[in-house]
């Protein structure tokens, strides 16, 4: 039990010992082992990114099938679970088409940068006990900062495509992302006011000692889920793609591998949002019986399934309604929530 709980920590220790042994053998300073460990951490994060993207793509299609009472993908592999692999191979083999009028360098850069923000965010995510690659004192601020950057590759894509639909999609991304950041920041602020720390691991410790924050901040939790959907450009906030109005929005001029990068990055962004919700509101990796990292994956799985459920249940919202809802409903609501939280924290302190 203890062994399974710490299996990844043990693997990391083993790697570190191996590096130290190698460095001693080569007569190099032992401090370089920590530098080499950074590479190991990044490798782990890349693996998590790729696996969660591949898994959640097929899970989305399966779950949509269950919800709509149809079989869903059921051809390749047992019950159709290997469809994503087939899709990935198809997308890699497709011709890489770049439009003539496009800004070719930025077109490529946008696709390459799409994966950077979720990977940077996952670096500070506590997957389990002692399983935080970057245990920052200001972890929450760091994750907010890097997830803010997620809208920039999409903006680049919209500009570089030199296509009016893509440009309109990019404008919508920016509108939406910047607007919904405000209530999201206020949600996170409510949590920080209660827990009294910016450190993600300490927030989890606080919840272990007291109570899950979802019980104390239910409004913030619900608003966080809504804003997370909007920040990830997921339905019902998928206006940037908006296939009924903008063909495929920002992704109109993307195909093959470059499209696949954006598509997979969307799932990674969702995973980051779900992971942050788990950490801030649902007690993170803590839970009885099962190892910590299993609890983390289970809780994120539930939230991801909720995101998918929402996508297949609600129609797309009109652009002006999206912004009106943010500025006239969510922001005042969260300001009131912060005020009440502040008063209660002050009175109890």
């Amino acid at each position: 039990m203890e062994f399974v709980n710490n299996i990844f920590v043990n693997i990391a220790d083993l790697c570190r010992a191996l590096f130290v042994w190698l460095l001693n053998l080569l007569g190099l300073p032992v401090g370089l082992a920590e530098v080499a460990m950074v590479a190991v951490y990044w490798l782990g994060i890349v693996i998590v990114c790729v696996f969660c993207a591949l898994f959640y793509v097929i899970w989305e299609r399966k779950l949509a099938g269950y919800i709509q009472r149809r079989p869903g993908p059921n051809r390749l592999g047992p019950n159709g679970w290997f469809h994503t692999v087939g899709d990935a191979i198809k997308l890699v083999m497709k011709e890489d088409i770049v439009p003539d009028g496009a800004d070719k360098n930025v077109h490529l850069l946008a696709a390459l940068l799409a994966f950077v923000p979720p990977m940077l965010a996952l670096a500070a995510m506590p997957f389990g006990e002692g399983m935080t690659a970057l245990d920052l004192e200001l972890g929450v601020v760091y994750i907010m900062a890097v997830t803010t950057l997620a809208s920039l590759p999409v903006l680049c894509a919209g500009y570089a495509s030199n296509n009016k639909f893509a440009m309109m999609g990019a404008m919508r991304v920016v509108n939406q992302a910047i607007s919904y950041e405000v209530p999201q920041a206020l949600c996170i602020l409510s949590v920080i006011m209660v827990a009294g720390t910016f450190n993600l691991n300490q927030i989890i410790d606080w919840q272990t000692g007291n109570i899950w924050l979802v019980c104390l901040q239910p409004v913030a939790f619900v608003v966080y889920l809504i804003t997370a959907l909007a920040e990830c450009n997921r339905a019902p906030f998928d206006l940037p793609e908006g296939e009924s109005e903008l063909t495929a929005g920002v992704f109109t001029e993307y195909s093959g591998m470059r499209y696949a990068l954006f598509y997979l990055a969307e799932y990674c962004n969702m995973f980051v949002a779900a992971g942050l919700a788990t950490t801030l509101f649902l007690g993170g990796f803590t839970g009885p019986f099962l190892p910590g990292w299993v609890w983390f994956l289970l809780k994120t799985f539930v939230i991801m399934s909720f995101f998918i459920w929402v996508r297949w249940s609600f129609p797309r919202i009109r652009a002006d309604h999206v912004l009106t809802f943010c500025w006239k409903v969510l922001v005042p609501l969260m300001l009131a929530n912060v005020l009440v939280t502040g008063v209660v924290v002050y009175l109890l302190a």
Binding site: L138, V141, M144, T148, L149, I178
Partner: peptide, 25 residues
Amino acid sequence: ADFIGGVQVIVYAGSVAVLIVLALL
């Protein structure tokens, strides 16, 4: 200076720069 760095990314790179480019476009 982690806090200042984070704020720099959130406010400048995340919001101000994007608003500038929107205005320009």
